[in-house]
Amino acid sequence: MSPKRGDRVTVPPPGDEWDVRFGSSDAVRGWEELCRLALANTRRCLEALRSEPRSRSNHDRQHRLRGDLATHRHNGRDLEQWEYEVTSGGRVRYVIDDGNRTIWIVYASPRHPKDTDG
């Protein structure tokens, strides 16, 4: 069975790691495409999201978005929105739900999102 919106990205998180779930059907499709094109990088992304979603150790690869993109409304709540660079063009955007210790992937694609162009 294929994953859908709300499904966990992989097995339940061990210990104190974060739960990572899909925030939209488009994110599911994009994640699967990233896995096909760049599996090792996508796995590193998942590991980073599970262990340290707010890591600042590699700002070029993982960072909070700014301006209008700094927050994203998900399930009726405004949450911090971050981005992880999987490949030179591929991105995963996610929001952090501290209350449920859940990361919601709201965008995943091997193509760079157009809203940051310009």
Results as ranks from 00 to 15, higher is better:
residue 114 K to C: 10
residue 90 G to I: 10
residue 81 Q to L: 14
residue 84 Y to C: 07
residue 107 Y to S: 05
residue 108 A to K: 12
residue 114 K to D: 15
residue 112 H to D: 03
residue 109 S to R: 11
residue 107 Y to T: 03
residue 113 P to M: 07
residue 109 S to P: 08
residue 110 P to S: 03
residue 104 W to S: 03
residue 99 G to W: 02
residue 113 P to W: 04
residue 114 K to L: 15
residue 94 Y to Q: 05
residue 102 T to P: 12
residue 108 A to G: 04
residue 92 V to H: 08
residue 80 E to W: 09
residue 91 R to G: 06
residue 112 H to F: 04
residue 94 Y to F: 06
residue 109 S to L: 01
residue 112 H to V: 09
residue 106 V to R: 00
residue 79 L to E: 14
residue 85 E to P: 01
residue 109 S to A: 11
residue 116 T to H: 04
residue 102 T to Y: 00
residue 81 Q to K: 15
residue 88 S to V: 14
residue 92 V to Q: 02
residue 87 T to Q: 10
residue 110 P to Y: 05
residue 80 E to Q: 10
residue 88 S to E: 13
residue 108 A to Y: 00
residue 88 S to A: 09
residue 90 G to C: 13
residue 95 V to Q: 08
residue 81 Q to W: 06
residue 114 K to F: 15
residue 82 W to Q: 07
residue 93 R to D: 06
residue 101 R to N: 04
residue 117 D to T: 08
residue 102 T to M: 03
residue 111 R to C: 12
residue 80 E to L: 10
residue 113 P to F: 08
residue 107 Y to I: 06
residue 79 L to P: 10
residue 97 D to L: 12
residue 106 V to S: 07
residue 102 T to L: 03
residue 86 V to D: 00
residue 93 R to V: 03
residue 94 Y to D: 04
residue 86 V to M: 04
residue 106 V to L: 13
residue 84 Y to K: 09
residue 111 R to Y: 14
residue 103 I to L: 00
residue 104 W to T: 07
residue 103 I to A: 08
residue 117 D to R: 14
residue 116 T to Y: 11
residue 117 D to M: 08
residue 98 D to N: 02
residue 110 P to E: 03
residue 93 R to T: 15
residue 88 S to W: 08
residue 116 T to V: 09
residue 115 D to A: 12
residue 82 W to F: 11
residue 78 D to P: 07
residue 100 N to D: 07
residue 117 D to W: 10
residue 110 P to F: 02
residue 89 G to N: 11
residue 112 H to G: 06
residue 111 R to L: 05
residue 111 R to E: 09
residue 104 W to K: 02
residue 109 S to D: 15
residue 107 Y to N: 06
residue 117 D to P: 05
residue 88 S to Y: 08
residue 101 R to M: 08
residue 113 P to E: 12
residue 107 Y to M: 00
residue 117 D to F: 14
residue 115 D to W: 15
residue 98 D to T: 00
residue 90 G to K: 09
residue 82 W to E: 10
residue 98 D to P: 02
residue 105 I to L: 08
residue 99 G to I: 00
residue 90 G to S: 11
residue 111 R to I: 11
residue 93 R to C: 08
residue 86 V to T: 07
residue 108 A to M: 03
residue 100 N to L: 15
residue 77 R to S: 10
residue 113 P to A: 11
residue 81 Q to S: 07
residue 117 D to L: 15
residue 83 E to Q: 15
residue 103 I to F: 01
residue 108 A to V: 01
residue 105 I to E: 00
residue 92 V to S: 00
residue 77 R to A: 05
residue 95 V to H: 04
residue 77 R to I: 01
residue 93 R to H: 14
residue 94 Y to R: 08
